[in-house]
Design a protein around this nucleic acid. Structure first.
Length: 237
DNA sequence: TAGGCCATCTGGTCCT
DNA sequence: AGGACCAGATGGCCTA
């Protein structure tokens, strides 16, 4: 475990162990916690429909965040950000706590107090930007997005995203092998050689159904720009 | 009621 | 010097 992960898991041991071991089995667990519609890729959720996932938003994510960062970077840094009217009750209570504690701070010079408020406001904005980024991440990873379904926690979002990236990479690699195999003049009617499923296809393969359906699913799921690699699929009904 | 999750404050450290 | 980043502390809300 690297330093970053150590920092992430500075919570209770139980929680840390729960999250460190996140894998396909954990995806199922998260499915139960956050909604049955989630995580139907891989792990034997063969009936899942790839089109359900908001993957089309992935390309917008980076650009969106860039715009957001630029925008937040241009925010004014006055102490107006410490006004309470824009805060929800939870935030307001903490803000009032700051006021409550201010009795001890009144002994400090006014300038220091003002500086402290400015730093607090900056930190709040930073954390809000971080949360916006996490929301963007939640929007592009597969779990049930519904008002009746609890939002993924921060740590669950990060771990699920990591697993999702790994699974996508595996699927892509497997597809490349499949394309190479097809380019050698073989047909899909023959069983797929074991060499094409080095990752344990049943466990990680994100598509289900027949070989032809799999091919079509892949072509439609892997990108808005049709690759020349999949011309053979476009020619078929 | 305990535990999980979160927002916020705060002081320290590093970087520009 | 000022800003970004980080981690610890604190307290509130929610759920099992």
């Amino acid at each position: 475990m690297n330093v970053g992960e150590e920092n992430i898991f500075h919570g209770s041991d139980k929680r840390m162990n729960d999250l460190k071991s996140i894998g396909n089995e954990t995806l199922i667990d998260l499915t139960q916690r956050y909604g049955q519609a989630a995580f139907s890729f891989g792990a034997g959720h063969g009936a899942g429909s790839p089109g359900r996932y908001p993957m089309s938003g992935a390309s917008d994510f980076l650009s969106g965040q860039t715009a957001k960062s630029t925008e937040s970077g241009g925010e004014q840094t006055s102490d107006d950000d410490d006004s309470f009217d824009h805060l929800d009750p939870r935030k307001r209570s903490s803000a009032f706590d700051e006021d409550k504690h201010s009795s001890s701070l009144t002994k400090k010079p006014k300038e220091q107090r003002s500086l402290r408020l400015s730093i607090n406001a900056r930190e709040r904005r930073r954390m809000h930007d971080l949360n916006d980024a996490l929301d963007g991440l939640r929007a592009v990873i597969p779990y049930a997005h519904s008002p009746s379904v609890r939002k993924l926690s921060k740590i669950a979002t990060l771990l699920l995203a990591k697993n999702y990236i790994l699974m996508q990479a595996q699927a892509l690699e497997e597809m490349r092998r499949l394309v190479a195999y097809l380019n050698q003049g073989q047909t899909l009617t023959s069983p797929i050689p074991a060499a094409l499923a080095p990752f344990g296809q049943a466990a990680v393969y994100p598509f289900s159904g027949t070989a032809l359906a799999t091919c079509a699913e892949k072509c439609t799921s892997y990108g808005g720009t049709p690759s020349s690699l999949f011309k053979h699929c476009n020619d078929k009904p």
